[in-house]
Write a protein that binds this DNA or RNA. Sequence first.
DNA 1: AGTGTATCCTGCAGGC
DNA 2: TGCCTGCAGGATACAC
Length: 275
Amino acid sequence: MPELPEAETLARGLRPVLPGSVIRRTRVLHDDVLRMPARRFRRDLAGRTITGVGRRAKNVVLELDRGEGVLLVNLGMTGRLVPMGFEGGPPGRPTHPAIRFGFGEGRGLVFDDTRRFGCVEVLDARDWEERSRSIGPEPLSDGWRWSRLHADLQASRTPLRNWLLDQRRVAGVGNIYANEACFRAGVRPDRPARAVEEAEARALHRGIREVLRSGIRYGGTTLRDYRNARGEPGRNQRRLRVYGREGEPCLRCGTPIQRIVFGNRSAFFCPECQR
DNA sequence: AGTGTATCCTGCAGGC
DNA sequence: TGCCTGCAGGATACAC
């Protein structure tokens, strides 16, 4: 579920709330969301202060004191972060709590994840730097240019949609926004990456940025589970042009949107507008 | 290097 | 109402 815009929206909602909180207690209800032994996880977090909230790719990054370590949260398909006991409204009780962080004075944070495909881990500064380096460029950063995208695409013949989902190539793009970006670029999602021409790479670069910015502007896309820090759904789902619209008319030309499956996942496109 | 497949897990919608 | 199938925003591992 949560792709870059959803993680960004969540991080923005947590930023005014969490910093300054001291992790006094960590309860692991489902250890399968941890990438490390529960004992070490709890020990690494004990007594540490959350100093900031950021995002990298689809991850929410809770920055920690004592050496710039981070608590890295990947939301998977159904993950949520629910602040508890802060003013600004109780966002409803978590239905599938996996980890509970207690800050004292009745406050805390719950990592809630129905399917538990998400994961949570603590990394020290060195490991975090190394991990971040293994992830591709942030598509909304100034440094990410269409020429780089075009050059990188030439190195692969995997289908464009799959290429976009690979976090080592570009950060934060998931199945919804990948399909939407392909539509805006007028390129079929199953076209080999290296067959994307220069002008198309420009359009794709622009399309990726547009769909991600739209996602952020409208508070994320909620198909079912996504909620921001206040427990509210996003509004971007109304702006999707192809994703989930199989058989419905293309908003540009009226041709029925097609769904095909490859790489084990659905892809949606307009056979008329996308070549 | 690429693809297809399977895995982790739960819930929901639709067909009968 | 119940049972079954298929599907879901992610990430990874495997055989070929």
